[in-house]
Design a protein around this nucleic acid. Structure first.
Length: 414
RNA sequence: GUGGGCGUAGCUCAGCAGGUAGAGCUCCUGGUUGUGGUCCAGGCGGUCGCCGGUUCGAAUCCGGUCGCUCACCCCA
C-alpha cells in the first residue's frame, strides 16, 4: 500500500472486473443508439476554454470553479471538457451539419473532467454516455431522447429509477420567473430556514425541496415555472407530457428540477435513483434551443441528455463477474509446451478462448490455474502425443484426436 | 472551499493501559510417482501513510502533514 504513486485525486483505475461490467453498459447503449439512428460521434477531450464559458455559461458552478483549465505552449487557454453538449454543438457548426438532413442524431461516450471534491458517485474524471438530436423543436424529439435513456436503464435492470420532468420555457420567461420567485421568497424571508434564505439570489429553486416546515409552507404558495410558461412553451410541454403518457413512461413533474448548465430551454428531465448516496441523479438533460446560435451557428433547436456511467454502475452494484475460458491447454510434460501453444492458437482461430500455462507450472499447478481462471475444459497433452479432454465441471475426461481438435471440442459435451 | 470517519501484508482486518507486528483470504510449493475445485503443512509478502516530538523504548501517546472516504455545496 505504500506505493509512491497513486491515481490522482478523483480518478481511478478501471480494473478488468470493472471493465467487464462497463462493457456491458456500453454494448447495451451502442445497440440502443444504433437501432434508433443515433450515430456515434467523438470530440476531443479538451477544447478552447471559451467554448465552455459561452456554452455552459459563466455563472454556472462548472465554469466558475470546476474546470481543469491550462495554457498550451502557444498561450491558448484550454479546458478539459466538463460536459459533452457544447463540444458537439461546436462540431455541428464547424462541419456544417445544418446542411445535412435534420435532425442530426448523435451519440457519444467518453471521459469528462470536473475539479470537484470527490465522493460516492462523483469523480474528477468520470464517464458519460449521451445522445443529442439537433435540428428540430418537435416534442417528439424530446420524448424519443427520453425513451432511449429509459430503455437503456430498463434493459440494464437498474433498480428504483424515477423520471423527473420540468420545463424552463424560453430564456426570457425563465429569467422573469426566477425574479418573481426571488421576490416571493424575499417577501417571506422571516419564515424561511437560514439555509434557504442565504441562497435566495444564488439558487432560489432549491427552496422547493427544503425539509423545514416554514419553508415548505412558503413554497406551497410559491409560483412554479410550469404555471408561468407562455403559450407556445406551455403547449410544447403539454405535448411532451402527452407523448410520454402514450409511450407508457411514468414521470413526475418537479418544479425544482435544476440543471447545471445555462443553455437549457423548455423541456428538462432527470432520471434519479434512490440508494446512490448524495448524488442521486443517474442521467439527465433537456432541450437547448439557443445554444448553437449562441456559439455562432444558425438558430437551431436541439435536445439531448447525458448519463453517468459510474452512477449506473453504482446503481447496478455490479462487479463484472468471472471471465471464464473455453479451454485451458495443459501439458503433462515440458516437451509438449510448444505444441500446446500451437493448439491454443488453433482454438483461438476457431473463435474459442484458450490459454496455456506461461509460468512453467507442474501438471497439478496447471490444472489448479485452469480452475482458477474458470476454464470449462482442460486439454491435457501427453508425452506420447495423445491427448485428453477434461470437463472441469464434472471431472470426467476422454481421449481426443488433436488432429480434429476443433470438432472434438465443439462436438462432445465434455 | 467547509465538516465527520479512516490510514497496519496484494485484499479484509486484529493488535494500541508504549517494549519493537499477527490472522483470514489470495499467490507459490508440497502432502498425492502424472490430474484442479475440499482438507493439511510450508513458503513469499509489511519503512505499521509521511515528518517531527515525548520516552531507555512508539504501530500504539502528542503535533503537523499527505492521502482515502462520506457529507455539505453542486451535479452525470
Amino acid at each position: 500500500m505504500a506505493s509512491k504513486y497513486q491515481a490522482p485525486r478523483g480518478t481511478f483505475d478501471i480494473l478488468p472486473a470493472q471493465a467487464r461490467a462497463r462493457a456491458r453498459i456500453e454494448r447495451a447503449a451502442a445497440a440502443i443508439f444504433a437501432r434508433a439512428g443515433y450515430e456515434p460521434i467523438a470530440t476531443p477531450a479538451f477544447e478552447d476554454t471559451e467554448l465552455f464559458e459561452r456554452g455552459v455559461g459563466r455563472s454556472t458552478d462548472i465554469v466558475r470553479k470546476e474546470m481543469f483549465t491550462f495554457e498550451d505552449k502557444g498561450g491558448r487557454s484550454i479546458t478539459l471538457r466538463p460536459e459533452g453538449t457544447a463540444p458537439i454543438c461546436r462540431a455541428y457548426i464547424e462541419h456544417g451539419m445544418h446542411k445535412l438532413a435534420q435532425p442530426v442524431k448523435l451519440s457519444y461516450l467518453g471521459p469528462f473532467f470536473r475539479h470537484e471534491r470527490p465522493q460516492a458517485g462523483r469523480h474528477r474524471q468520470f464517464h458519460q454516455l449521451g445522445a443529442e438530436a439537433i435540428g428540430t423543436d418537435s416534442p417528439l424529439a424530446d420524448v424519443e431522447a427520453i425513451m432511449l435513456l429509459a430503455d437503456l436503464l430498463a434493459e440494464l435492470g437498474t433498480p428504483g429509477v424515477e423520471l423527473r420532468l420540468g420545463s424552463l420555457g424560453s430564456l426570457d420567461s425563465r429569467r422573469a420567473y426566477l425574479e418573481e420567485l426571488k421576490a416571493h421568497l424575499h417577501a417571506h424571508e422571516g419564515e424561511l430556514s437560514r439555509d434557504v434564505r442565504e441562497r435566495i439570489d444564488l439558487n432560489p429553486l432549491r427552496a422547493f425541496d427544503a425539509d423545514d416546515e416554514g419553508t415548505q409552507a412558503v413554497m406551497a404558495a410559491a409560483p412554479t415555472i410550469v404555471e408561468r410558461l407562455d403559450g407556445e412553451d406551455a403547449e410544447h410541454f403539454a405535448e411532451v407530457r402527452a407523448l410520454l403518457e402514450a409511450a407508457g413512461i411514468e414521470h413526475t413533474i418537479d418544479p425544482a428540477l435544476v440543471r447545471g448548465l445555462d443553455y437549457y430551454t423548455r423541456t428538462i428531465f432527470s432520471f434519479v435513483c434512490e440508494g446512490l448516496g448524495a448524488q442521486s441523479e443517474i442521467g439527465g438533460g433537456g432541450r437547448y434551443d439557443g445554444l448553437i446560435e449562441q456559439l455562432g451557428g444558425p438558430p437551431t433547436p436541439a435536445v439531448g441528455w447525458a448519463a453517468g456511467i459510474e452512477r449506473i454502475l453504482l446503481a447496478l452494484g455490479e462487479d463484472g463477474g468471472a471471465p471464464g475460458r473455453d479451454v485451458f491447454v495443459v501439458v503433462a510434460e515440458d516437451g509438449q509446451r510448444q505444441r500446446a501453444l500451437t493448439l491454443a492458437g488453433e482454438l483461438r482461430h476457431a473463435g474459442l478462448s484458450a490459454e496455456v500455462d506461461l509460468a512453467g507450472r507442474s501438471l497439478k499447478g496447471q490444472l489448479k490455474h485452469a480452475d482458477r481462471l474458470g476454464a470449462r475444459r482442460a486439454l491435457i497433452l501427453e508425452a506420447d502425443g495423445s491427448a485428453q479432454l477434461r470437463d472441469m465441471g464434472t471431472g470426467r475426461q476422454r481421449p481426443v484426436d488433436t488432429a480434429r481438435l476443433i470438432d472434438e471440442v465443439a462436438g462432445g459435451g465434455s
